[in-house]
Amino acid sequence: MTDDVKISGEPMNVPTMCRFTVDRPLYPDQSFHFGSSEAAEMSPLAKRLFAIEGVAAVLITDNRVTVTKHGPSPWPEVGQQVGTALREHLATGDPAVDPSLRDTIPPVDVLRDRVQGILDREVNPSVASHGGVVRLLDVQENMVYVQMGGGCQGCGMADVTLKQGVEIAIRSEIPEVGEIMDTTDHASGNNPYYAPSKK
């Protein structure tokens, strides 16, 4: 029954990352980030993905898998292998993540405090120089919801700031964090630090 599994790949703004969406749940309403093959011991799906050459990190969220890769293999080649691994996993009927692994996630309050600490310490003092702010809206399980405001909202470089800066800071300190979602309505930003205007 896995022959008809539909999988689509979507590049992320960070060149080393690609998100794969499957037409059925993998890890319903939950999310887990694996920063290394060692950390993936309790995830049958992540173990398969780490077996692909160059895969450096895996984020499993509901019906999506975000893969970070290093190495020379181009995404079309790696993507095919990811698709095969996803189909093989679904054919086993195993859970994507061992339920007991969730016990290792820090409590939401702890995660929230740690992410807030990074924003307060590493991020907001810096983006404040551009009149910007990155707010922590919520943490659910290990999924982090942020919102960019002030000079960041609608800024031409907001994507770069979030993906190349903020995400890297959070993940390097808290590898247990799952997906980081930008909930900002950038179109409504009325004072972007860099308003797009040039050809």
Binding site: P11, V14, P15, M17, K69, S73, P74, W75, Q164
Partner: peptide, 11 residues
């Protein structure tokens, strides 16, 4: 940035 991602480069 999306194209750079598809190309699989360090950016």
């Amino acid at each position: 940035l999306a194209a750079a991602a598809r190309c699989g480069v360090e950016l």
